[in-house]
Design a protein around this nucleic acid. Structure first.
Length: 817
DNA sequence: CTTAGGG
DNA sequence: CCCTAAG
C-alpha cells in the first residue's frame, strides 16, 4: 500500500513548500490509492452548502494547498459502494492532524496526529521526501479503516477484519492506543449526545483539583482544567464518577440527565461523548499548545433545534474548550438561544448541559486564576462581553468603529447597560458574544476577524452551524454603539461567583469572569419570570459558595460592610474570596447539610450559610432569613459558648419555653444591658415615643433577671446583633421611596437604578420599613431640633437627607388624600 | 409572601 | 431589630 501511495504522489507531481504539505498530500494519495476519487479540495471542500454525497466528477487536486495550514479533501468511492469521505488535515506546530468524517458515520470525527519530522525529509519530491512510509501508511490505514472498508458500511468498525489485513492490524493497534474510540453504535444513540458531564473526557486526567482524583476517560483539556466537586463529601456530585451513571438519588439538574424514558441511552451518551471528545481533544491540545487557537470564540448562539444536532454540539464544544484554554481565566462561554422564549426557558437540555460545562470550566479557571500571580492582569485581559445581537445585519460598519472607540475610552471601566435605552429591535435576537479582536495566529479551525474592532464575525463554519435554517445568513453583525449606555459598575465587593447566560436578560451587556461584577443590576431588571429563574441560578451558586464558607474562605472583612456581626451574605453578594476556594458547582443542599459541614464560625458566617442553604432549597426558599437567624439564635441561647457554671442553668430554663421566646429575650437583654448605639431602634433621645419602649425593655429585663439571674449573664456573653445602617444604605432607601413611595419595600429592594438593589441586599423589606419609620420619626421633628441635632449628635444622617425624607413624607400624605 | 404595627 | 397578625 505504501508503494501505491507513493506512486500516486509521484504521478501527481505536487510541489511542496512545507513538511506539512508533504504529509498532507501523502494522506490524500493514500486515500486515492484506496479507490476513492477526489471531488473537491481546498476551500471548495469546506463549502458547507454543497452536497458532497451526491455523485460528482473527479477533480484535479488544484488548490489543495491553497489554505495555509489547512488541507481539505472530499472523496467519493470510485465504485460508489462506500460512503463519501471528508478528510481534513491541520498543520499544528510540527504535527499534522488528520481528521476525517465519514458521512454515514455521523458527525463523529476521528483524528490522527502525525509528526512531520518522523515521516518527511528535506527532499523536495516523492519518494525521497518521505521516510518510514510503511509506518505512515499503517497509521492511516488504522485511522481510515472503517471508511476504506469495502465490505461493511462506513460506520461499522466491528467487522474490520473483512478489509485489508494490514489495515486491520493497524486498526487494532490504533484502537488500543485510543480506547476512547469505540463502538460507533453509541454514536447514533438518541438525541441526548450533547450531555457533557464531569465524567466527560473533556475534563482530563492529571489535572484534578480538590483532591478528588482523576475522572474516568481520556484526553486532556485546557491547561489547568480540573474537576471541582459540586457537592460536599458523601453527596452525589463530590466524585467525578457520580454522573457517569447516576446511582440513585436525584441527580443534579445541571448534569442534564436523560429524561424519563431515556435512561437506557445513558451508556450510549457517555460512549458517544467519549468518542467525540477524545478525538477532538488531542487536536485541541495541540492547538492550545501551539497557540493556534483563536483568542476567543466569536459567537455561540444556539437554537433549540441544535439539541439534536451533534455537529452543532461538537463545534460548540470545540469552541468552548478553545475558549477556555486559550483565553483568560474568565472562561467566557456564552450560551444563547435564538428565540427569546427558549432562552428564558431553563428547560433546554442543551443549554443546561452546556451551562454545566461552562460552569465547570469557568470554576476551574477561576480558581486557577485566583492562584495566579497576575490575576488582575488576566482579568483585565478578559475581553469577552455579551452584547445584543441584531437579528439582521445592521445598519453599517461605522457602528463598529464607533463602538470600538467608545470601548477603548472606557477600557478601565466595567460596562453596563440598562435596558431602557435599548432599541426594541434588538430584543428579538438574543445574544452573541463579542470579543475584542486582537491579532493572533490564524487558527485552522476558526478564521480570524477580518478587522479589529467589535464587529462580530462568525466563521463560515460557525455561521452555518449556528444559523442553519434560520432567517439570516450573514456571518457578520455590527453592534450599534447606541445599545451600550455606560453605567458605573457596582461596588467592587459584589463579585459574581459564576454567571449564566440565563442570568442575562435581553439587551444587556455582561461580562464573564472571576472578577466580573455581580450582574445585580441586570438581574433585578428583568421580568418576574426571568427574575425567578435568576434567583434560582443564583441560589445554586450560593450553594457552591457554601463550600468556600465552610473552609473559612469567607471572612467578615471580605464582605466589605462595617457591621461585623450582623453581616450576611445576601443572595446576590459574593465575596471575592470565593474564587480562591473550591467553588464547586451548584447543587441542591438542604439546611442539614450545613451542619454537616460543621462550621464554628462567627455568627455572620453561619448566617451566611443559612441564607445560602435556605436559598438552595428551590425556587422559593422554605425559610426566610429572619426565621433562620432566629433559629440560630435559639440554638445559641440553648447552647452557651462559655464554660461558666451558670451556663448550665440557662438551657434548662429556656428549654421549657418556645425557642423563639428565649431568642427574643436574649435580644431584649442584649439591648438593655448593652450601652452602645441603639438609637435607630429605640430613638430615646429623639422623641417621647421611645419612653414607652425603653420602659418596656426595662420591664422585660426585670422580669427576666428575676426569673433567672443566670440567664442575664449568659445572654450578655451572646452578641447583640445591631447592624447600623450605613449612609449609603439609607440613601438608597430614600431614593427608593422617592421612586416608588413608601410601603413598596419589596419593590424597592428590586430597584436597579443607582444600584439600590445591591445596596439593600442585606436588608429585608421589614428592615426597610422599620428604617423608614425611624427616619420619618426623626424627620418629623422641627427644623430647629434637627439643626441642633446635626451639630451635637454623632448621627451621620445629613440634614439634607432628613429634609428629603420630610418631603417624601408630605408627598405621600398628599397622595393618600 | 408582604405589609403594618406593636414591642 | 424582633415578632406577629392580617391581607
Amino acid at each position: 500500500m505504501e508503494a501505491a501511495t507513493l506512486a500516486v504522489v509521484r504521478a501527481s507531481r505536487p510541489s511542496f513548500e512545507t513538511a506539512h504539505d508533504k504529509l498532507a498530500f501523502a494522506v490524500h494519495a493514500f486515500v486515492l490509492a484506496n479507490g476513492f476519487k477526489l471531488v473537491a479540495t481546498g476551500a471548495a471542500a469546506e463549502d458547507e452548502t454543497a452536497d458532497f454525497s451526491a455523485s460528482r466528477e473527479e477533480v484535479e487536486p488544484t488548490g489543495w494547498d491553497s489554505q495555509e495550514g489547512t488541507y481539505a479533501f472530499r472523496y467519493q468511492d470510485t465504485e460508489g459502494s462506500r460512503a463519501p469521505l471528508y478528510v481534513k488535515c491541520l498543520a499544528v506546530g510540527s504535527q499534522l492532524l488528520v481528521h476525517w468524517v465519514g458521512a454515514s458515520g455521523g458527525k463523529v470525527p476521528l483524528t490522527l496526529e502525525l509528526d512531520t519530522a518522523a515521516y518527511t525529509t528535506d527532499a523536495p519530491a516523492a519518494p525521497a521526501c518521505y521516510q518510514r512510509a510503511n509506518e505512515l501508511v499503517s497509521k492511516l490505514g488504522g485511522l481510515l479503516a472503517s471508511a476504506l472498508d469495502r465490505g461493511a458500511s462506513a460506520a461499522t468498525t466491528t467487522d474490520r477484519s473483512a478489509g485489508q489485513p494490514g489495515s486491520s492490524r493497524a486498526a487494532e493497534r490504533e484502537a488500543e492506543e485510543q480506547p476512547g474510540l469505540m463502538d460507533p453504535r453509541g454514536m447514533r444513540g438518541g438525541g441526548g449526545g450533547m450531555h457533557v458531564g464531569p465524567g466527560d473526557p473533556i475534563f482530563g486526567p492529571g489535572r484534578m483539583g480538590g483532591g478528588v482524583g482523576a475522572p474516568p476517560g481520556h484526553g486532556s483539556l485546557p491547561p489547568g482544567a480540573r474537576w471541582d466537586p459540586i457537592a460536599p463529601p458523601g453527596m452525589q456530585g463530590f466524585h467525578p464518577d457520580d454522573f457517569q451513571r447516576p446511582a440513585g438519588g436525584r441527580p443534579h439538574p445541571d448534569m442534564a440527565q436523560p429524561g424519563p424514558g431515556r435512561g437506557a441511552d445513558m451508556d450510549y451518551i457517555i460512549t458517544e461523548q467519549r468518542c467525540i471528545a477524545t478525538a477532538r481533544t488531542s487536536m485541541m491540545d495541540s492547538l492550545l499548545e501551539h497557540h493556534h487557537a483563536p483568542q476567543l470564540p466569536e459567537l455561540m448562539m444556539i437554537d433549540d433545534e441544535c439539541s439534536s444536532d451533534h455537529a452543532s454540539v461538537d463545534s460548540w464544544m470545540v469552541g468552548l474548550a478553545l475558549c477556555a484554554g486559550n483565553s483568560s481565566p474568565s472562561a467566557p462561554v456564552p450560551i444563547a438561544s435564538r428565540a427569546r422564549a427558549q432562552r428564558m426557558s431553563p428547560g433546554s437540555d442543551l443549554v443546561d448541559s452546556l451551562e454545566s460545562t461552562q460552569t465547570m470550566l469557568g470554576a476551574s479557571l477561576r480558581q486557577d486564576a485566583a492562584a495566579a500571580a497576575h490575576q488582575q492582569l488576566l482579568v483585565e485581559q478578559s475581553g469577552m462581553r455579551f452584547v445584543p445581537v441584531a437579528d439582521k445585519p445592521a445598519a453599517g460598519r461605522q457602528f463598529a468603529t464607533t463602538l470600538t472607540q467608545q470601548l477603548q475610552q472606557q477600557q478601565q471601566q466595567q460596562l453596563w447597560a440598562e435596558p431602557s435605552s435599548l432599541d426594541d429591535d434588538l430584543y428579538h435576537s438574543g445574544f452573541g458574544a463579542v470579543a475584542a479582536a486582537q491579532p493572533r495566529a490564524t487558527s485552522p479551525l476558526f478564521r480570524p476577524p477580518q478587522e479589529a474592532g467589535w464587529q462580530f464575525q462568525a466563521s463560515p463554519q460557525l455561521a452555518s452551524t449556528y444559523d442553519s435554517g434560520s432567517s439570516f445568513s450573514a456571518a457578520t453583525w455590527d453592534v450599534p454603539p447606541a445599545t451600550l449606555p455606560l453605567h458605573a459598575p457596582p461596588p467592587p465587593h459584589q463579585l459574581h461567583a459564576g454567571i449564566s447566560s440565563l442570568d442575562i436578560p435581553y439587551g444587556y451587556v455582561a461580562e464573564f469572569g472571576a472578577q466580573a461584577p455581580l450582574p445585580c443590576l441586570l438581574r433585578r431588571a428583568v421580568s418576574d419570570n426571568v427574575l425567578d429563574h435568576s434567583v434560582h441560578q443564583q441560589h445554586r451558586y450560593d450553594t457552591g459558595l457554601l463550600a468556600s464558607v465552610a473552609e473559612g474562605g469567607v471572612g467578615e472583612d471580605s464582605v466589605g460592610s462595617q457591621g461585623s456581626e450582623g453581616d450576611t451574605v445576601g443572595g446576590y453578594q459574593h465575596p471575592q474570596h470565593a474564587s480562591q476556594q473550591p467553588l464547586g458547582l451548584p447543587v441542591s443542599h438542604s439546611a442539614p447539610n450545613v451542619s454537616l459541614l460543621g462550621l464554628e464560625r462567627s455568627n455572620s458566617t453561619v448566617r451566611s450559610q443559612l441564607h445560602a442553604a435556605a436559598g438552595s432549597r428551590g425556587g422559593h426558599s422554605a425559610a426566610s432569613p429572619r426565621k433562620l437567624s432566629l433559629k440560630l439564635k435559639s440554638q445559641r441561647s440553648r447552647q452557651p459558648a462559655g464554660p461558666r457554671a451558670s451556663a448550665t442553668a440557662a438551657p434548662a430554663h429556656a428549654s421549657h419555653r418556645p425557642a423563639r421566646l428565649a431568642a427574643r429575650r436574649s435580644v431584649v437583654l442584649a439591648a438593655a444591658t448593652s450601652s452602645d448605639d441603639d438609637e435607630e431602634y429605640a430613638p430615646a433621645s429623639e422623641s417621647d415615643l421611645s419612653e414607652a419602649e425603653v420602659s418596656g425593655v426595662a420591664g422585660e429585663v426585670r422580669r427576666s433577671s428575676g426569673g433567672s439571674p443566670a440567664l442575664k449573664h449568659e445572654s450578655s456573653t451572646g452578641k447583640k446583633k445591631h447592624n447600623p445602617w450605613s449612609l449609603n444604605e439609607t440613601e438608597a432607601l430614600v431614593e427608593g421611596v422617592r421612586l416608588l413611595g413608601p410601603s413598596k419595600w419589596a419593590e424597592i429592594k428590586k430597584l436597579t437604578v443607582s444600584g439600590i438593589c445591591s445596596l439593600l441586599t442585606n436588608r429585608s423589606a421589614v428592615d426597610l420599613k422599620d428604617k423608614w419609620r425611624n427616619l420619618t420619626r426623626v424627620a418629623r421633628l422641627s427644623k430647629a431640633v434637627l439643626k441642633s441635632r446635626s451639630h451635637k449628635s454623632t448621627s451621620d444622617i445629613p440634614l439634607e437627607l432628613l429634609l428629603t425624607v420630610k418631603e417624601l413624607m408630605e408627598l405621600a400624605k398628599v397622595e393618600a388624600e
